[in-house]
């Protein structure tokens, strides 16, 4: 058995004149959760459609579960579970009917693979007679996951499954994915949320059709070599402006309540920045040294592609 679920080699795809994917290469091992992290329009959906055999690659090769996505697409379609980014259920059918329909067209029944979906289906079971169109965002995505899982695929391809879903449902959704992974399923998932990246075994950061880096989440953050400072004060707007004038600032990004400042090498001491801010007239700023998160790395890579790790 192939030990890699997905092998992509210098895949490119162009729409009219827009380059959606540019020489993308990566591999997904069997039984891992691989996260494709990137902003909207980075090319995630195009990539996933190619891997789900829905779209033809422009150039390059893609092999999923040991099968070429172009030559043997029909054989492959039975073995993958694809959940598109858009809502892909029938709004006029009930929860139960949707599930049964998707089970039927894959030649199975909900009962046959119930063990796979049980944990998540239990949460939506009370609404099984409700029309799918009347479900909340989180419920819809859970149902869509059930529908994608119902034929027991070897690889799940989930395109932004948690976009527009509340925080609690997102957490539950990811718990489900981790459980599926323990059951031996390979999962390829895309997300614009950086906090979800940490849950993946490996991630690829993608922007404008190019993969910036592929590594385990902790490797990505560990390889971040520049000093990172978090700054907070009572006047965030003024603070942001003043920080941008600090001569040793590589980049300044607001992140929630803290402003993240990447300093030039050798300028990571909070003291220096603190005195700079006091000079600027900030009475009581707070400066602390931070551990870089995925988002810091991503922002930094995006800003300066030449610094690629």
């Amino acid at each position: 058995m192939e030990d890699r679920a997905v092998i992509v080699q210098s895949l490119s795809k162009t729409f009219d004149k827009v380059r959606a994917l540019h020489e993308v290469s990566f591999e997904v091992s069997r039984g891992e959760i691989f996260g494709m992290i990137g902003p909207d329009g980075a090319g995630k959906t195009t990539l996933f459609r190619i891997l789900s055999t829905l779209m033809l690659p422009g150039s390059g090769q893609a092999e999923v579960l040991g099968t070429d996505v172009v030559k043997n697409y029909r054989k492959l379609r039975k073995r993958i579970g694809y959940m598109p980014g858009r809502f892909s259920l029938y709004p006029d059918l009930t929860v139960r009917e949707n599930l049964e329909f998707y089970a039927t067209i894959f030649g199975t029944t909900p009962a046959e693979n119930y063990h796979l979906i049980r944990d998540i289906y239990i949460q939506i079971e009370p609404f099984s007679k409700r029309r799918a169109g009347a479900l909340s965002g989180g419920m819809k995505q859970k149902l869509a996951l059930c529908c994608a899982l119902i034929h027991k695929p070897d690889l799940l391809i989930l395109d932004e499954p948690t976009t527009g879903v509340d925080a609690v449902s997102r957490k539950e959704f990811w718990e489900m994915l981790l459980k599926l992974k323990q059951g031996g399923m390979s999962i390829l998932v895309s997300t614009p949320y950086m906090d979800e990246a940490a849950q993946c075994d490996n991630i690829a950061l993608i922007q404008e059709g190019r993969i910036l880096v592929t590594a385990a989440p902790h490797e990505v953050t560990a390889s971040f070599s520049l000093p990172l400072l978090g700054v907070r004060s009572n006047a965030p707007w003024l603070l942001l402006n003043d920080l941008r004038q600090w001569p040793y600032a590589e980049s300044v990004q607001p992140f929630g309540e803290f402003i993240h400042v990447i300093a030039q090498p050798g300028h990571g001491e909070p003291q220096a920045l603190l005195s700079f801010l006091k000079e600027k007239g900030h009475p009581d700023p707070e400066v602390r040294v931070l551990q870089a998160g995925i988002e810091d790395c991503f922002m930094h890579l995006m800003g300066a592609p030449s610094h690629a790790i």
Binding site: R77, P84, S88, P91, Y102, F106
Partner: peptide, 13 residues
């Protein structure tokens, strides 16, 4: 329009 065609196409149908 609903996006269900994507899933139908991916299915063995």
């Amino acid at each position: 329009e609903q996006g269900t065609m994507e899933v139908l196409l991916v299915s063995p149908l």
